[in-house]
Design a protein around this nucleic acid. Structure first.
Lengths: 330, 330
DNA sequence: CGGACATTTGACAACGTTGTCAGAAAGACA
DNA sequence: TGTCTTTCTGACAACGTTGTCAAATGTCCG
């Protein structure tokens, strides 16, 4: 910048003004500065700029995801990026692998780099530690799951309602023995979904049969094993509800191996690519990760723009996509 | 830091020494500083640190991907992150959407933030502009596709060899009329794959029939249309090679709709989830994005550690996964 | 033409840290 | 005890910017 100023024969401050697009520099000088900075291939140093600025903005936000390679998370990531780009902001992303310690490390590393805001898909079960970041002016928004022990903005799927829709749909097809395969119960969303299942059965006047429920299933293999167990029991279900992506795939694998995939109904929670190309196509309650990400980023930037309204939980609705597996009658 | 120094009754510089783990601070003072910084909830400001340091390291790298939500790219991303984490480095990620202008904007935004290195999945067809970043000490590594007009480190899949393996496999099953569905030819990897197809046919003594080849297919729909066209022509192929992920899916869709999925063979390039659950399972030439990412990040950090050896192109091998669709005989 | 006012420009300090270098304290040895 | 090392500590400047404030220049009016 000093070199540019020298070449353009103006002061440092004038160059700064031009670079930042501040008003009050005559066109003549602006042009001189621009041509000088172009000739010297000058590049603005945002590190120094951030340090000096009164608001300390780094034009960077941090995103903590369960795993950047997971399709749900990476779609979130992309939606956030699209909003960020429109604000000339870049995205630092990190994977927590469902590990609370890792989540905190990432937040800390982001904070050290002076991010303006954080979007967190939480793994931790206590977010009071984030109070410190908020006090220093960092905006925080949670996605996919609500925060614990901290009142904050969050954008979540309406999990219970989604599962209730699935159960209702199966009852409409004539099912009464509907099994449920759920994820680790400690995860707030998994608990919500299980709650939806229980509530809708009650609503439909069907008694909950614990022998048709398997929880704490992590990954395809566990789900496949649990589904196989249910399906080969003495009083098997005529339909299955899978509480998560990989569980749906595991359940389908089990159905296929037992050659029951055209006789037992299956509705999964969360859509996945190719669900339509399986035989039968898998009926799912689809979440909308892109909408979640877009909403969350929107909230974040509104906070950064000074929005001081009360913290709010935003709910993104699910959509049922019928493809065949959920329309099998008992 | 000033407050910590005051509370611990030491100088600023001593706090700095403790924070950076420099040697030569007595255990007594170290302890005092640590407890003071803990009491004040002090957080090291990496922005200021980067600005002042002689090497200017920001402990951040930038990654330009075609789309962070694309499975191939996000797997790359995750593999890079894992290596970066081990070096206490964070990852800024951005999507170029195959747009050269966007690629340059991202690189520029990363450079402004003082990234130590760049990993680029290129969309641009001229990378001379990166010379400037390299001159300022930023390490650059290309992934998935080689750079153009710039000699640099790159980590790529052995595309031609992979496709040759596919063709060879189909010939072994007795096929002679093998169709090829390829991606936009401007993309270096797509051209490589097409080359592999042509070369292997020559090797096998089969004449190339242009009526069996469709190039420049972008997305599932285009691929499906092209495959349908080939399959319904007067002299249709008995086997198809798909040059990319989405093209494979499009081709499979076409086969399914024409009810030819058990009569015409299909081998796809690049694996995808659930390829094993389709009927028949899809035989693919699998790339290894995790290995590409890991290798690229390894090269990058070696460069940052001072490796001055000549630029090199690293090749990651493909693997054929047979699942049924490629083993259909004519 | 002088004065009031608006616009444009620049000098200087400061952001929070680390590199340099010199000084103080502690230990070793005659 | 005095001197010479060695180890530890701190004062100060500097990194590349931007905020503040005052000075310089331009414009308009009576």
């Amino acid at each position: 910048m000093r070199d540019v100023a020298a070449l353009a024969k103006v002061s440092l401050k004038t160059v700064s003004r031009v670079v930042n697009g501040e008003s009050g520099v005559s066109p003549r000088l602006t042009k001189r500065v621009l041509s000088a900075s172009h000739r010297l291939a000058y590049r603005h140093n945002l590190t120094a700029s951030t340090l000096r600025r009164s608001d300390g903005r780094s034009l960077t936000i941090g995103v903590v995801l369960e795993d950047v390679a997971n399709p749900f998370a990476s779609t979130l990531h992309r939606a956030i990026e699209d909003v960020a780009v429109a604000h000339k902001v870049l995205v630092l992303a990190g994977s927590s692998d469902e590990d609370p310690g890792r989540e905190r490390q990432l937040v800390s590393a982001f904070a050290s780099r002076g991010v303006d805001g954080l979007i967190i898909q939480p793994s931790s079960h206590d977010h009071r530690y984030l109070q410190r970041e908020r006090n220093t002016g960092t905006a925080v928004v949670f996605v996919d799951r609500p925060p614990a022990f901290l009142v904050a903005d969050a954008v979540v799927t309406d999990n219970a309602a989604g599962i209730r829709r699935a159960v209702q749909h199966l009852v409409e097809q004539g099912h009464r023995r509907i099994g449920y395969l759920g994820d680790v119960h400690l995860i707030a969303t998994a608990a919500e979904r299980h709650r939806g299942y229980v509530e809708e059965l009650a609503e439909q006047g069907i008694e909950v049969d614990q022998s048709l429920i398997r929880l704490d299933l992590r990954g395809i293999e566990k789900a496949e094993a649990a589904a196989t167990e249910l399906l080969t029991s003495s009083r098997p279900p005529t339909a299955l509800v899978a509480g998560q992506n990989l569980i749906t795939i595991g359940a389908f694998r089990a159905l296929r191996k037992l050659d029951l995939h055209r006789r037992v109904a299956l509705v999964g929670f969360d859509d996945f690519v190719l669900a339509d190309l399986l035989e039968p196509g898998i009926t799912v309650i689809a979440q909308d990760p892109a909408a979640i990400g877009k909403t969350a980023a929107g909230v974040l930037f509104r906070r950064l723009d000074g929005d001081r309204s009360p913290w709010q939980e935003h709910t993104v609705r699910t959509r049922m996509i019928t493809r065949g597996s959920g329309e099998i009658r008992p």
